[in-house]
């Protein structure tokens, strides 16, 4: 048996409201918010990046699992905003957590799917018996170009999952992937901001791959939408995952715990993993969870987890997602936000 033995998240304290951004660009904030089900987003402090958020999330995962960091055989950090273009984030994280040196690390990148990529690899490495525990982190401090639609949603956060075989809180039932080469969103080497296909990111991209993965895993497991207690889809905004869930026959009761984007924004690689963490915060034992990520480019990883009784004893050992999301917030004006995110030109 393999599954999640600890999970944790980290969300920056800073927020900016959609209407604050809209004000700068003369956009219709109300229409934007209603249309995308998006009201505010997290903003990383100037001293936060994918490595620091990853360490924060992983410390919470370690606290929940109670294991010795030295037992961790692999650390995978999935992100599209690694602090260095060349130089691993995984070594920074492993060193900070006291896991080095007997560890395998890799930095993964697959737009918003890099977090579940790490989870997929970590789960299967532990399953094969190569190692006792493996850590997978999805983290991002993504940037949308000023004035672009993505600026309203691109946010920051990290979720970490520790995979193992003992004291499992959510057992892995099955996985299924769905990949095609679909250029709906990308960032070229040396480009500061990504480019995207506008409405092309919808039906042929997000919808096709999420639907493809869901349909495939339902067929593989013989399960139906109503068999799941909880559902988490990748959430680039608050609209896509809700629309997809309804079209596929899921209900609000299934996705409500995992839907964070309306006040968190899109944490990219952290997005659906963070939704899973928020769901584990609320789930009872012996419940079924369906997690489906989406990464532009494009692909989806689907996972089915079944919670165990250990979840109830383990989850109060670290802060819950909604607590991090809703408490001790500091709201920024656009000028401060622009400074925090390095959007202001200064002499070198």
């Amino acid at each position: 048996m393999v599954g999640i033995i600890g999970y944790g998240t980290q969300i920056p304290r800073y927020r900016i409201k959609v209407k604050e951004i809209a004000k700068v660009w003369g956009a219709d904030a109300e229409a934007l918010s209603k249309g995308l089900n998006l009201y505010e987003k997290s903003v990383p402090a100037p001293d936060e990046d994918t490595a620091t958020l990853s360490v924060g999330a992983a410390k919470n995962a370690l606290a929940r699992s109670g294991i010795d960091p030295k037992l961790i055989g692999a650390v995978y950090v999935g992100s599209e905003s690694h602090p260095y273009a060349v130089k691993p984030t995984g070594t920074i994280v492993s060193e900070a957590l006291g896991i080095c040196p007997h560890v395998h690390t890799a930095d993964l990148e697959f737009a918003c799917k890099a977090g579940t990529e790490g989870m997929f690899i970590a789960l299967h490495l532990v399953k094969t018996g190569v190692m006792e525990c493996a850590l997978a982190i999805g983290a991002d401090t993504s940037q949308g170009a000023p004035g672009d639609a993505l600026e309203y949603s691109a946010s920051a956060g990290a979720a970490a999952f520790l995979m193992g075989t003992k004291n499992i809180v959510a057992e892995l039932v099955d996985t299924q992937c769905y990949m095609t080469d679909t250029p709906d969103f990308w960032r070229r080497e040396n480009a500061h901001y990504p480019e995207h296909g506008g409405r092309f990111t919808g039906k042929p991209a997000y919808q096709k791959h999420v639907f493809g993965a869901v349909e495939a895993i339902l067929e593989k497991t013989g399960m139906k939408p109503k068999d799941f207690d909880y559902l988490i889809f990748h959430q680039p905004n608050g609209k896509f995952p809700v629309q997809a869930a309804k079209q596929l026959g899921f209900t609000e009761a299934q996705y409500r715990y995992g839907l964070l984007t309306p006040t968190l924004g899109n944490t990219y690689s952290g997005s659906s993993p963070m939704g899973l963490a928020a769901t584990l915060d609320e789930a009872g034992p012996d419940q079924l969870i369906l997690l489906v990520s989406y990464g532009s480019g494009a692909g989806s990883d689907a996972f089915v987890f079944r919670t165990t009784k250990h979840l109830l004893t383990n989850r109060d050992l670290a802060p819950r997602v909604r607590k991090q999301l809703n408490e001790h917030l500091q709201y920024l004006e656009y000028g401060e936000y622009a400074k925090f995110r390095g959007k202001i030109l200064k002499p070198e």
Binding site: A45, P46, D47, E48, D49, A51, T52, V55, G56, P83, Y84, A96, E348
Partner: peptide, 14 residues
Amino acid sequence: RFRRINEEGKTGLI
């Protein structure tokens, strides 16, 4: 908390 303290310019060590 584990944070960035400083960097050697925009292209240097963090």
